[in-house]
Write a protein that binds this DNA or RNA. Sequence first.
DNA 1: CGCAATTAAATTGTACGCAAGTGAATTTTG
DNA 2: CAAAATTCACTTGCGTACAATTTAATTGCG
Lengths: 155, 155
Amino acid sequence: MKAHLAKTMEIPEEEKRLENQLCFAVYSTAHAFTRAYKPILDKVGLTYPQYLVMLALWEKSEQAVKAIGEQLDLDSGTLSPLLKRLEQNGLIKRTRDSRDERQVIVSLTDKGLAMRSEIDTIMTAIGQAAGCTLEEMKTIRGLLRGLRSNLTAAV
Amino acid sequence: MKAHLAKTMEIPEEEKRLENQLCFAVYSTAHAFTRAYKPILDKVGLTYPQYLVMLALWEKSEQAVKAIGEQLDLDSGTLSPLLKRLEQNGLIKRTRDSRDERQVIVSLTDKGLAMRSEIDTIMTAIGQAAGCTLEEMKTIRGLLRGLRSNLTAAV
DNA sequence: CGCAATTAAATTGTACGCAAGTGAATTTTG
DNA sequence: CAAAATTCACTTGCGTACAATTTAATTGCG
């Protein structure tokens, strides 16, 4: 290997602009989604992260905090207070696993399960707001999955 | 218009899964980016949102808080405390605009300007972590811009 | 001109996200 | 089997995000 090799490639100035950062495109689109969801989710009394947790639970009730965290890529420091609020709103209940007392099993209440009927309204509204074809959605989803997997592996 | 029309289209169960939500793909990729940036930005003492503000200022120093907010799509509620921290770290200074005393002009200090030399190292490292071709990056960036624009217009 | 409406930034209050640390339960090891 | 290491959830502290309010300055309108 040669000595004195530049540690970094030269990056064109244009590529250094905020607007041209891929990370910023992802960051600002994430915020745009949260804002688009807000008026819809306000009606059912959920925040956007709470809605994601509900999606996980509607797929499978009776999940440990850790399992929910793995699906959402969030740790208990984020989930514990969020789940406490969902519990206070009567959507979920939390019980210690009798087989392994370290774990807390989160499950839907009747009220939480009933809220699943809102899913079609919510997703239709967001689909409209996103305003792209199912094909485009799948393309972006696929590209982001690859990107996310690279970023996660790199750390 | 016919009466009794269904308000919402039927959405296939598979499309209702957390993992298949486009919003979740964006949400989790944004977090993955933040985590990938963390070890790199820790070395220069910046958080990820602070880095975005610095990018805006490296492009053009002497900007009002509102102008920065428009580029990042953030309001003063978020920016005020963030800028206060950048000022405490000696990277920027804030002065009232004498022409319009309502505005605060943010400008780079020598230390803040000097930090721009880290840009190549940071962007090269993230490029490696993202591990996709320049072509893919541009594709995703373009698709996300369209998506963001739709979502914002819808609200 | 003079007052109402608007604008800019800061502040307050709520809710994430995440690092770091705590405490209790379980698993691994010597 | 007992001590050490690990695991799980919770808590604490800090830094965003954002709605809503406040204060000060400027603009618009009669």
